[in-house]
Design a protein around this nucleic acid. Sequence first.
DNA 1: CCGTTTGATGGAAACGTTTACATTCTGCCT
DNA 2: AGGCAGAATGTAAACGTTTCCATCAAACGG
Lengths: 336, 336
Amino acid sequence: MTASIKDVAALAGVSIATVSRTLNTPDRVSPATRDTVRQAVATLGFRLSRIGQQLRGDRSRLIGVMLPSIASPVFAECVEGIEAAATAAGYQILLMSTAYDGVREQAALDTLLRQRVDGLILTVAHAHEHPLLDELERTGAPYVLVYNQCPHRPCVSVDNRGAARDGVAALITAGYRRIVMLSGAMAASDRAWQRYLGYGDALAAAGLVATPALEVDFNSVTLPAVVLAALTDPETRPDALFCGNDRLAMLVMRQLQQAGLALPRDIAILGFDGLDVGTLMSPVLASVCQPNARLGAMAMQSLDLAIRDDAAPVSRILPHSLRLGGSAAPVRFRPD
Amino acid sequence: MTASIKDVAALAGVSIATVSRTLNTPDRVSPATRDTVRQAVATLGFRLSRIGQQLRGDRSRLIGVMLPSIASPVFAECVEGIEAAATAAGYQILLMSTAYDGVREQAALDTLLRQRVDGLILTVAHAHEHPLLDELERTGAPYVLVYNQCPHRPCVSVDNRGAARDGVAALITAGYRRIVMLSGAMAASDRAWQRYLGYGDALAAAGLVATPALEVDFNSVTLPAVVLAALTDPETRPDALFCGNDRLAMLVMRQLQQAGLALPRDIAILGFDGLDVGTLMSPVLASVCQPNARLGAMAMQSLDLAIRDDAAPVSRILPHSLRLGGSAAPVRFRPD
DNA sequence: CCGTTTGATGGAAACGTTTACATTCTGCCT
DNA sequence: AGGCAGAATGTAAACGTTTCCATCAAACGG
C-alpha cells in the first residue's frame, strides 16, 4: 500500500488540508509546519496521487494516441514528436495500436474514453465516413487526426496530393519520362489515393501519360513476381518509379539491385515519407519528406490549444520537402 | 461534462448501485431494470470512469514505459511488443522517453508513480548503480528492465556477451581474421561493454588478437574522418567490422560503399540488433538478432505475473539468433 | 484595552465508483 | 395462513484529493 495524504498528515500531526497546501501552495503555510510536513513526505516517500486529483475534477492530463502501428518508422517518429510536445505541455500519452482493424479501434477508443483522456490523436484508414470518428464527435472529446487529410475534420498532415505532384515533377525535371507509381492498396488508406492523384497531376502538367498504379500488399516482404518482372524487363520497364511510401521504396531498391539493375541509371526510385533510415541506403533514397515528428508535435499542440480554449482543434497542413539526388539523381546519358 | 453514473441512475429511475450492477454483473439485476438502465446508458453514451474505479482501490491497470528513445527502431519494435502484451493482459501503457538523461528520467519516474502505475518497464544506461532504480525499489513498485542485463535486478534481455561472441565467431568461421569492433561510446550503455567482451571472447577462442574498439558518438550522422580513413585504407583496413548496433552498421555500410568499397569482398560488416530494416539494405545487413518485440512482450508478461502474485518479477534471457550471409557472407578469393 | 485585520490551520463536502449491509417484496413450504 | 428463503434494489461508506468556509490566535490601530 502506498502512503496517502492522510498518512502524511498523521505523521506530521497536521490536517490533510495543510499537507495539500504544503505541496501545492507552500507560501500559504508557516515555515515551521512546512518543514514538518516536508519531513513526513520524505520519510514516507509520498507523492500526491493523480487519481485523487483527477477525481476532484481536474483534467486527467492524459492524451490517447491511437495509431495503426508503432514499429513503423513513420509512426514511431510521429509518436516521438507527440511525446515531446505532450511532456512539454504537461500531458502524458496512452499509446494503443490498431493495425487499422475496426474491432481493435473500437476497443482502443472505449478504453481511452473510460480513462477520461483529455483528448485523442489518431490515424485511421479513411477519415471521411469512419464510424469511430462520428462516435467520437458525439462524445465531445477533442481529437485530431494525423496523416489523414479530410476537409470535414481536424487534421494535421502534409498536402499529400501536392507533395506527390512536386516529387513527380522533380523526377520529370531530372529528365525521367516513363514514370510509374507503385502503391500500397488504394483501399487501405486515403493517402494512397491522394498521392496517386498528385502523381497524375504532375504527369498531366508535363503532357505525359499516367498509367494505373501497381498495387501491392503493404506489408509484403517481397514484391510479387509479376511486378518485379515488369520493373526489370529492359523492354517494358519504366524510367522511374514513384513509391507511395519509403518502406516500399526500400524494398524495391533492394530487389532491383539484386536483380542486377543500377540505380538510378537503369531506373530511378522516389519514395514518400522522408524516413531517416532512407539516408543510410546507397544510393541514398530520394523521397518526398513529411516532417513526421513535427506532424506529431503539431497535432499535440493543436489539441492542447483546443483543450484549453474548449474549442475545436484547428487543422494544419505542414510543408513537405524533397530529398533529391541519390536514387533519383538526374541521369545524363540515357539512351532514348 | 461527461455523464456520471448518477446521471444514468437518475435517467433510469434507479439507484447508482443498480447501474453499477447492470454494468458489472448483469445477471444480478432483473431483466426489466437491466433494459431500462442499458437504454439510459446508451442515451447518454455513458462509460464507467476508470478514475472512479481506480480510486476505489482497484489496480490502475496502467504500466509505465520509460525508454531512451521511441523513434529508434530497436525501441519502437520493443514498444510494439510491450503494447501487444499489455493489451492482451488488460493493461494500457504510459510511454515516456528519456534520452538517457537523468533529469528526464527522474521527472518521468515521478509522473508515472504519481499516476499510480501498476508497474514499470524501463531501459537505462547502466543498470547496476543507477540511483533511479534504487529509489524505485524503495517505493516497492514492481519493475523490469529491458535490454539491460544485470545480475541484481529483474531484467529481460539477450545474453549480450554470448551473442556478440557467437556473431564474431561466425565471422571467423566465414574466413575473416582481422576483425575490428566499432561501438557507440562504452560509457553510454552497459550493453556496449558487454558486447565488446563477447567480441574479445570469440577472438581469444580462435587465437586471434583483439584490438581496442573504435568508439564513435552514437547519434552521429557521419563517421569521423579518422575512423573512415582507418576503414578504407587498403593497407590498414580490417577484414571485417563488428558494429555494436545496426544503426552504426548501416551508417558504415553506406559510407564504405560510397568510398568505393565492395561489401563484403573488401570488408565484411556484422551488426547487432537484427532490425527488420537491415534486410532492405543491399547487401542485406548481417546481424546478431535480438527478438525486440518478444523482449518487450516478455518483459510485460513477467511484470504482469509479478503484479498478480505480488512477487518480484523474474529475469529472462531470450535466445538471440544470427542473420548471416549478405554483408558478412564468406569471401572465397581473399588475397592474403 | 477593545475591535478588527491578517495569517495559519482544521473541518467537511465533492468528485465517480464498488460493495457490504439493509430493506422490501414475491412466492414457496408446511 | 404464517413464516421464511431468495431475489431485487437501495443506502451509505470508502478510496485520495482540493478547496470553501470556519475557527482561532496573534498582531495592530485607535
